[in-house]
């Protein structure tokens, strides 16, 4: 055979074509007794039903965590999880934290110095000293 094939696997480009939200589960933990859960308890009663309805793609779990501070735990498609402690926060502040977890990609926080990150090769190509008008050896 003159031409053989090299086996490759296509790579995901989330958002090109279809977009899949990266946050797949949010777990809300509360304590019935402790004062630091006051805001969380009111969040669970008043805000969470609306939040859950707006985000059907996230599986939402509510579980007690007695004698501990309330937390929100987000699980992501890449297998990582992010946890935020929401002790002593008001219910609207907790909603902000829940939105933060919802919008996160699950990746570690990273500084991007370049404005564009692409899988595609540069249109301009790599610089070559042998091409162009003015090369001389």
């Amino acid at each position: 055979m003159p031409v053989n094939a090299i086996r490759l696997v296509s790579k995901s480009q989330n958002g090109v074509g279809a977009f899949v939200l990266q946050c797949k589960r949010l777990e809300f933990n509360y304590c019935d007794w402790a004062g630091s859960s006051k805001g969380m308890n009111s969040f669970l009663k008043n805000v969470l039903p609306k939040f859950a309805k707006e985000n059907p793609q996230i599986e939402i779990t509510v579980a007690p965590r007695p004698h501990r501070h309330p937390i929100i735990r987000g699980e992501y498609i890449n297998g990582r999880e992010k946890v935020i402690c929401v002790a002593n926060l008001e219910h609207n502040q907790i909603l902000q934290k829940a939105d933060l977890l919802r919008n996160s990609s699950g990746l570690k926080l990273k500084r991007f110095n370049k404005p564009v990150k692409s899988e595609n090769q540069s249109v301009r190509g790599i610089y070559s000293p042998f091409h162009g008008a003015n090369w001389q050896i």
């Binding site: 031409v3 296509s10 995901s12 480009q13 090109v16 074509g17 279809a18």
Partner: peptide, 19 residues
Amino acid sequence: RQHILSRKLEVEKMFDFSQ
């Protein structure tokens, strides 16, 4: 189309020429 064919595949890297 949205979920499968939109994925990135570099077909130009799949050739292995013997001669």
